[in-house]
Design a protein around this nucleic acid. Structure first.
Lengths: 92, 92
DNA sequence: TTAAATTATATATAAAAACATATATACATT
DNA sequence: AATGTATATATGTTTTTATATATAATTTAA
């Protein structure tokens, strides 16, 4: 579970957001967000989903035999990319 | 978020487990698990992680621009597969 | 079609923790 | 030095959870 919080922290930093900014978007105190991000609060699912929304992440559940593939897919991928992975050809 | 609960239910059925069995592995009442699985309880992160452990799933967070790839990867993949995706060559 | 099994829903008391609200500051990083 | 994060404190509310049980409703098996 610490991986989840690690992802949140990494992503937040990658997006260049401070805890203060994120907490404002979530309308919660910075102190509360700090505890969530560090795993010191066993927070609700809905709170994590809200955090994901702010950080442009989506939560999912992966079968154990696929997790390594999924992780490899996402290596260095918490950086925001404004372009989709696939760009359609332009039609003349 | 309803997708998460949908995955849990699908996976549980794929593994052929009843709510009763899963709830026993989790040491919680079946009635409580029913509410969690149906999204009627905004449960804690740790509870979902425990459920994932029983169902051989792992929670992760995916950047929005990768979610479609990840989902495609996992299509029809909530079935348990006893073999890893990659099998090492045997050494003579 | 019926019976059995499973799931959803209800009820109750009580404890625990998250959360809301607020603020401050120690500590760490830039 | 300024900024960001972690930690502390306080009161009060809400929800989850624990514990227990029952049964209505639905699904599955026979």
């Amino acid at each position: 579970m610490s991986k989840i919080y690690g992802i949140i922290k990494e992503r937040r930093k990658t997006l260049g957001l401070t805890q203060k900014v994120v907490s404002e978007k979530l309308s919660i105190p910075q102190s509360h967000f700090s505890k969530i991000e560090s795993g010191l609060s066993d927070t609700r699912m809905s709170t994590i989903v809200d955090i994901c929304r702010v950080l442009e992440l989506e939560m999912t559940l992966v079968p154990n035999n696929k997790i390594r593939v999924v992780r490899a897919l996402m290596e260095d991928s918490y950086a925001r990319m404004d372009k989709p992975a696939w760009v359609p050809d332009e039609e003349a």
